[in-house]
Design a binder for these strands. Structure first.
Length: 130
DNA sequence: TTGTTGACCTCTT
DNA sequence: CAAGAGGCCAACA
């Protein structure tokens, strides 16, 4: 069935109408990001079949700190490879430090070689849950 | 309850 | 090609 692009968790007939479904889907995908790789909000949203809801992905990440198991939110950047969410970590440099510790170069709040480090969820997940 | 605000993206002038 | 506007939906005031 062709999923509409509006009301993400409302057209998920296979799941209860819990408003948190979208968030958990986001967390699930973020946790799948391999070590040393990064992805973008839009890619995650597109993988979930709602490319226009990329903004909600950001909201999901906002709450990701309170969620277990651990969500590697530092591996999610915006489409330009910019660390747009570094301010929401406990320290402004934590995101950059984490990425560096995984071998990702960061320069001027931007991921170096973003194209090479980019990990497309749709490629790995394929038709997961769709 | 209505209104504003987001760690964004895409389409349209 | 650059700049602007629209859109998505949950949280918060």
């Amino acid at each position: 069935m062709p999923a509409k692009k509006t009301a993400i968790n409302k057209n998920r007939s296979d799941l209860p109408p819990t408003p948190y479904t979208f968030f958990e889907d986001v967390y699930a995908i973020v946790r799948l990001i391999p070590y040393g790789r990064v992805t973008s909000y839009g890619a995650i949203a597109a993988c979930l079949g709602a490319r226009s809801s990329a903004r909600m992905v950001g909201w999901a990440m906002n709450a990701s700190h309170t969620v277990l198991p651990y969500v590697p939110a530092h591996r999610v950047v915006n489409r330009d490879g910019i660390l747009s969410g570094k301010h929401h970590f406990s320290t402004p440099t934590e995101m950059e430090e984490l990425l560096r510790s995984e071998g990702i170069e960061v320069r001027d709040n931007q991921v170096v070689d973003f194209d090479q480090k980019f990990w497309d969820p749709a490629q790995e997940v394929g038709g997961w849950r769709l």
